[in-house]
Amino acid sequence: MARYIRKRVATALIVTLGVSFLVFLMVNLLPGDATAVMLAEFGASAQQQEELRRQLGLDRPLMVRYWEFLTNAIRGDLGRSLFTRRRVTAQILEQYPATIRLALAGMGIAIVLGSIAGVTAAVNRGKLFDTGTMFVALLAVSMPSFWLGLIFIFFFAVRLGWFPTSGSATLRHLVLPAFAIGLRTAGVLARLIRSSMLEVLRQDYITTARSKGVSERLVIWRHALKNALIPVVTVIGVQFGFLLGGTVITEIVFARQGIGDLIIKAIFSHDFPLVQGGVLVLAVVFVFVNLSVDLLYGFLDPRVRYD
């Protein structure tokens, strides 16, 4: 197991390095740079733009800048944003807690709703409840989160006044956005869990358990669900990884703090240090989540061996 983890961490490092280099290349090879954004409002002469480019160090060769970024990053210094002139690490640390809170809450809602709906639908296969649940799940998957968020705001915040429209200061600020992203993932999970459950319920050991007189509730929620979740865990892991990358649309609609919004804006304004630093952090998180999921397999499925 330890060897496996070491191997995986080593791979993760290589992947992260590769990602950071690719991102660096992509951002820098796009035509134009941050000075165009900075000067877009009031303008300047060509010569003044060139001067600013020099002052910000954007005129130096690509590889020199990448090497500098990399050596500084290893020491934990991701540089400063070209626009806010703040430390990239400070900006990421400031925004990330809100993203993690939203991802956890959204995933929690998705797992609870998705499991209940998926299992109940599988048990009631072919009945009205099954068809109805799967229809609602399909609706949830197809609904744009942008639209759903706005509907939530108008109904639950403006009309009923139950929750604040926007912001990220308290738990009450978390409810609407968590549902806005959670419902969609719940729809995905419900459909997956249903088909996975149907598969498992056909297995011999379920018949055995039933014939031994184990209560139906125990058969379904313990024996069957645990096995049905194995393929689902991968999907949960990937979905969670994406959620941890920031749900840009939801963050913007509810005016929440968050890493997704931060990085997207940085990309649009060609704020190189912030893009590079932000993507590096996201890559590390994503790789770490995937590793955790793989390790979780061992817990769910004793047949999996790490060697």
């Binding site: 706005l150 705001i153 108008f154 915040a157 403006v158 006044g161 604040p164 429209t165 926007s166 912001g167 913007i252 609609v253 509810f254 005016a255």
Partner: peptide, 18 residues
């Protein structure tokens, strides 16, 4: 200054008295 970028949300926050 509460930063609310989405136009509809900014209007909603004013309507909700926030």
């Amino acid at each position: 200054f509460q930063f609310i970028e989405e136009d509809s949300t900014r209007a909603a926050a004013l309507q909700a008295g926030e």
